[in-house]
Simulated assay, not measured.
Amino acid sequence: MQLKDEDGSITLEAALVIPVFMLFIVFMASIIRISVAEIALNKSVTETAQIIANHAYPATILSEELESIAGQKLSGISIGEISLGDVENLVGTTLLEFLDVNISGSNYIQELGNSAITPIIQKKFTQNTNSKMDGSNITVEVDLPSSLNGAADSYFGITATYDLDLTVPFVEKTITIKKQAYERLWVGGY
């Protein structure tokens, strides 16, 4: 009795199993990459919101003091008989319109907050990932409170989105990761 020749059977089995195994490894690596990006973005947004919420009160006190000093100094300024109010009447527009500052058309403070906080979150994100992921795909939106007087709506919020390109064969997708953090502003005594 002669047995069948089974040369090459392991090669055939390996040719069937190895591509599936390699695809599984690539997808697992992508899932890990997405998880690392999500954790880093969450940590960056949370830390930034906490830092800003903790430092808002001293900044508010400083801002109010500077407004008070500026108001006192500007209220006494007049050249001969012309005061700042007379200058506005002479120009025919308000001082902000004359200087071409359009605050009502676009939310100037909101845009300033977004542009100021975006580099901070991008830097924290690249520090938290410790990899080749850069923060250039991060967009940040800041939710500023309407008042800093200790009211119920004195929460500062940051919403950051990160566009992550998948590097998986046969898949050309971009995953958008979105994280939010809200912190109540410390406004002293409240």
Score class of each variant (00 low, 15 high):
N137Y: 02
T129K: 03
I158Y: 02
G157Y: 06
A160T: 05
I175Y: 11
V91M: 12
S68A: 11
K179I: 00
Y155H: 10
E64D: 14
T159V: 09
T93I: 09
Y155C: 02
N107P: 08
S131E: 01
T161W: 00
L84A: 05
I109R: 14
F156L: 13
A152H: 09
K132N: 13
S68D: 10
E97M: 07
T139I: 06
I177N: 06
D165H: 07
I138Q: 01
I109L: 15
K173R: 14
P58H: 10
S83R: 03
E141Y: 00
L112S: 13
S154G: 05
D86C: 01
Y108P: 02
Q122I: 03
D163T: 04
I175R: 07
N89D: 13
T176S: 04
A70L: 14
K132A: 12
L74N: 10
V91S: 08
K123C: 01
Q110F: 02
E172V: 08
I82S: 03
S75W: 00
N137V: 01
L62S: 15
F125K: 06
L62R: 14
T129P: 06
F98P: 03
G92W: 02
F98C: 00
V142Q: 04
A116E: 03
I103R: 14
I138H: 03
A152P: 06
E67G: 06
N130L: 15
Q122G: 02
F156R: 12
T174N: 13
V87K: 00
V101M: 11
L99F: 13
D100E: 15
E64M: 08
L74D: 03
A70N: 10
G157K: 03
K123T: 15
G105Q: 08
L144F: 11
K123D: 13
A59Y: 13
G135Y: 06
N137W: 00
N130C: 08
F156D: 10
I158P: 04
Q122C: 02
L148F: 15
S131F: 02
Q110P: 00
F170G: 09
G113T: 00
Y108H: 07
I177D: 07
Q110D: 12
A160R: 03
M133Q: 07
S154L: 01
N89E: 13
L164Y: 13
I69F: 08
V140F: 04
V91L: 15
G113N: 11
A70R: 11
Q72P: 00
K178E: 14
A160M: 04
Q127Y: 06
S104W: 08
N128M: 00
G135N: 08
P169V: 05
I175V: 15
I69M: 07
S83K: 03
E141N: 12
